[in-house]
Amino acid sequence: MRKFWSKFKREDGQVMIIFAFAMVVLIGFAALVIDVGTVQVAKRRMQTAAEAAALAGAQDLPKTAEAISAANTVAKLNGGSLIRTTVKAPYQGNSNQIEVICTINVQYSFARILGFTDTDVSGRAVAQKNPQWAGEALPFLNLDDDYLANPKIVAWEKTAPGDFESLWPDDYNVYFGGKFDDHSKTYFTVDFADGITVTKGTVATVKQEIGYIYGQKKPVYIFSLSSAVIKSGKYNNIKNKDVVPLEDLVLLQVTFDSFDEQDKNLFLTTTKVFDINKGEYPTDYLTSPGGTSATIVE
Results as ranks from 00 to 15, higher is better:
residue 47 Q to P: 11
residue 47 Q to C: 11
residue 47 Q to R: 11
residue 48 T to P: 11
residue 48 T to M: 12
residue 48 T to L: 15
residue 49 A to K: 06
residue 49 A to L: 02
residue 49 A to D: 00
residue 49 A to N: 02
residue 49 A to Y: 00
residue 49 A to C: 03
residue 49 A to P: 06
residue 49 A to Q: 01
residue 50 A to C: 10
residue 50 A to L: 09
residue 50 A to W: 02
residue 50 A to I: 01
residue 51 E to V: 07
residue 51 E to Q: 14
residue 52 A to K: 01
residue 52 A to S: 12
residue 52 A to Y: 01
residue 52 A to E: 09
residue 52 A to M: 09
residue 53 A to H: 02
residue 53 A to Y: 00
residue 53 A to R: 03
residue 53 A to W: 02
residue 53 A to F: 09
residue 53 A to E: 00
residue 54 A to T: 10
residue 54 A to Y: 07
residue 54 A to N: 10
residue 54 A to E: 10
residue 54 A to S: 12
residue 55 L to P: 08
residue 55 L to H: 02
residue 55 L to D: 08
residue 55 L to C: 07
residue 55 L to W: 07
residue 56 A to K: 05
residue 56 A to V: 04
residue 56 A to N: 07
residue 56 A to G: 03
residue 56 A to M: 05
residue 57 G to Q: 01
residue 57 G to L: 02
residue 57 G to D: 01
residue 57 G to K: 07
residue 57 G to T: 04
residue 57 G to V: 06
residue 58 A to I: 07
residue 58 A to D: 09
residue 58 A to L: 04
residue 58 A to V: 07
residue 58 A to W: 08
residue 59 Q to I: 09
residue 59 Q to G: 04
residue 59 Q to H: 10
residue 60 D to K: 11
residue 60 D to E: 15
residue 60 D to V: 08
residue 61 L to R: 05
residue 61 L to E: 06
residue 61 L to N: 00
residue 62 P to K: 01
residue 62 P to T: 06
residue 63 K to Y: 14
residue 63 K to E: 15
residue 63 K to G: 11
residue 63 K to R: 12
residue 63 K to H: 13
residue 63 K to P: 00
residue 63 K to I: 12
residue 64 T to G: 14
residue 64 T to R: 14
residue 65 A to N: 15
residue 66 E to R: 05
residue 66 E to M: 04
residue 66 E to S: 09
residue 66 E to Y: 03
residue 67 A to D: 09
residue 67 A to N: 12
residue 67 A to E: 02
residue 67 A to M: 10
residue 68 I to R: 13
residue 68 I to Y: 03
residue 68 I to C: 10
residue 68 I to G: 08
residue 68 I to F: 09
residue 69 S to E: 15
residue 69 S to K: 15
residue 69 S to Y: 13
residue 69 S to M: 15
residue 69 S to Q: 14
residue 69 S to R: 14
residue 70 A to W: 04
residue 71 A to I: 07
residue 71 A to V: 04
residue 71 A to G: 06
residue 71 A to C: 07
residue 71 A to Q: 04
residue 71 A to N: 02
residue 71 A to Y: 05
residue 72 N to C: 12
residue 72 N to I: 10
residue 72 N to L: 13
residue 73 T to E: 11
residue 73 T to A: 15
residue 73 T to M: 10
residue 73 T to C: 11
residue 73 T to P: 00
residue 73 T to D: 10
residue 74 V to P: 05
residue 75 A to C: 03
residue 75 A to I: 01
residue 75 A to V: 07
residue 75 A to M: 00
residue 75 A to Q: 03
residue 75 A to K: 03
residue 75 A to W: 02
residue 76 K to A: 15
residue 76 K to F: 11
residue 76 K to W: 08
residue 76 K to N: 13
residue 76 K to T: 11
residue 76 K to R: 15
residue 76 K to L: 14
residue 76 K to Y: 13
residue 76 K to P: 04
residue 77 L to Y: 08
residue 77 L to G: 03
residue 77 L to R: 01
residue 77 L to E: 08
residue 77 L to T: 05
residue 77 L to K: 07
residue 78 N to Q: 06
residue 78 N to L: 08
residue 78 N to Y: 05
residue 78 N to K: 03
